[in-house]
Structure formats: structure tokens, C-alpha cells
């Protein structure tokens, strides 16, 4: 199907964009890379009178290295992160993550800001930004706002962004040079969203561990983080203890995972942790 007729504007200031959105009373929608929004319009799951294209707003496509952190404009594409066209604060975690999002065609247009704003629970950037301790910035009718990525998602497809807010950028603190990370996700098919996902970062001064691809916000795993801080190496026999810590964290967060999903998450987590110790996770279809 094709979308219903729709007006399109590409404002050149953030204020104008916010103004257009608030004037519309909810009938206008932000358009970034269009990789999620346009299919929804085509399927007519969503209908709006006007699209406000934010890719022309000043600063939304730029990136700056500010020493202790990197700021990415909301409209930086997955592709630019993948290829190193923007500074990487993450010792390679972000380019690696970007390279595993969907297909190249989607990465060419899809943006990090669009991905966060949409907040599909299985999206890669939700868990990755939370794990990196990033902050999300926006501008709305009440002026600028910001919050830690970890607190950005309230539920599936629901974020702290108000109806008329434009996500403008993401500030990502630089990982310690000695930081080691691991990430693993399970997709049934090439280019499909993940069914389970985990990220582990070990660094001096605090480990981070998150599960993604849950039914809602990424789940932070404090007990796992404590365990990581004490680990000196990875042994397969640690998996049971890791699994228990994860289960306790999930329960403490007031969340639950179905049985297969819990096991898949646990495996992803164990592989992410092992990877942070330098053990390449098993990959299908490479060896033969």
C-alpha cells in the first residue's frame, strides 16, 4: 500500500520544527530516516496530516568530540557510525553494533535518534546507549530537556519525549581506554530485529550490564555488574552463577521473561561477558 496523502515540511530551525509540531495538535509527526515511520504509514497503521522532516535542522547530522564525551546529532545514521565517519567514544562497541542493525539499505537512512525516539524494545541503540551511560537531549515547547538513556524508555514504544519534542542529540561518555565490552544478540533471520540481546562492559570504576529485546525498557543488571567487577577471567562454569544473578536482577526490576526468552537472554549475556574477556562468541555458518 501507499500512504494516505500527507503534507511534508523540512524546517531549518529547531524552534520552527517544535512550533510546527505543537500547532498541529498531534496531527504532525517527526520524520527522520523514515525506516520505521514510512512502513507504518504505508501499512496505514499510522496516519498523520504532516511530516516534519528533522534531517535539515542545524546540528542534527553533525558529531563532535568533546574529549570526555562525544555528542552525536539525532540524525546521524547507523551507516556513519558503522564506518567511523563520526567519532567513536566506545572502543568499537558502537560501530560493531551499528553494523549488525538490519540491512545496509536500512542503515544508510535509519538514524540513531529515530531509533531511540521510536523505542522499539528490540532496537539496538536503546540497550547500547543505556549501557554506555549516554544522555539523551531534546527540545520541546518548554525548551531543552535531557535525561540518562537508562531512564529514557518508559515502556515499549513509550519514552520521556513529549508529543511536540524533537530529540536533538545524544551525549556519550568516553569509555576508559582499558574498558572491555561484549555484546550478543539473537536474530532468527538476517536483518530481523533481535529476539534476545545482552551487553556487558567491564571498566575500571564500574561495570555495566544490560538486557535488550525485552517487552519494554532495557533491563539493567546490578547483581551481574557486581559479579563482573570481581571476575578475573571467564570460565564456562561461571555461567550458572551469572544466570542466577541475571534472574535475580530481572525479578528485582519487577520484570519477567518467558522461559525460552530467559534462557536466550542468559546465553546472550554469558557470551557478551565471555566476549569482554576476549572469547569470540560462536557464530553460525562461518566455519564450514
Amino acid at each position: 500500500m501507499k500512504p494516505a496523502p500527507i503534507a511534508y515540511v523540512r524546517p531549518d530551525t529547531v524552534e520552527r520544527a517544535v512550533g510546527l509540531l505543537s500547532e498541529s495538535g498531534g496531527e504532525a509527526k517527526v520524520l527522520a530516516g523514515g525506516q520505521s515511520l514510512v512502513p507504518m504509514l504505508n501499512l496505514r497503521i499510522a496516519a498523520f496530516e504532516r511530516l516534519v522532516d528533522v534531517t535539515g535542522l542545524p546540528g542534527l547530522r553533525s558529531a563532535s568530540d568533546e574529549g570526555s564525551e562525544v555528542r552525536l546529532g539525532a540524525c546521524v545514521t547507523h551507516e556513519r557510525i558503522q564506518t567511523g565517519d563520526v567519532p567513536d567514544p566506545s572502543n568499537g562497541l558502537m560501530p560493531s553494533t551499528a553494523s549488525r542493525i538490519a540491512y545496509q539499505a536500512v542503515r544508510n537512512r535509519g538514524t540513531i535518534g529515530g531509533s531511540l525516539a521510536l523505542a522499539d524494545p528490540a532496537a539496538d541503540w536503546l540497550a547500547t546507549m543505556a549501557a554506555l551511560g549516554a544522555a539523551i537531549e531534546w527540545v520541546g515547547p518548554d525548551g531543552p530537556g535531557s535525561c540518562p538513556a537508562e531512564a529514557f524508555v518508559e515502556a515499549a514504544y513509550t519514552t520521556r519525549l513529549g508529543l511536540y519534542d524533537v530529540l536533538t542529540g545524544i551525549r556519550i561518555p568516553r569509555l576508559h581506554p582499558d574498558a572491555r565490552w561484549g555484546t550478543y544478540k539473537l536474530c532468527r533471520k538476517t536483518g530481523e530485529f533481535a529476539h534476545a540481546m545482552a551487553i556487558a562492559i567491564r571498566q575500571p570504576g564500574g561495570c555495566r550490564a544490560f538486557l535488550g529485546a525485552t517487552e519494554g525498557a532495557p533491563i539493567r543488571l546490578p547483581a551481574v555488574e557486581d559479579m563482573l567487577a570481581g571476575l578475573r577471567g571467564w570460565d564456562a562454569s561461571d555461567a550458572a552463577r551469572l544466570g542466577e544473578a541475571m534472574a535475580a536482577d530481572v525479578a528485582a526490576a519487577g520484570r519477567s521473561l518467558s522461559d525460552v526468552h530467559a534462557w536466550q537472554s542468559r546465553t546472550c549475556l554469558a557470551r557478551a561477558v565471555a566476549m569482554s574477556f576476549g572469547a569470540a562468541p560462536p557464530r553460525l555458518g562461518r566455519a564450514a
Partner: peptide
Amino acid sequence: AEVEVDTETGHYRITK
């Protein structure tokens, strides 16, 4: 068919 199975996840790939 030849397949590879990841026994920890059940994911598999048909290699041939």
C-alpha cells in the same frame, strides 16, 4: 541439507 546448530540457543544455519 547440511546444518550448523548453536546448541545453547537452538539457532541454526543451513550451510548447504
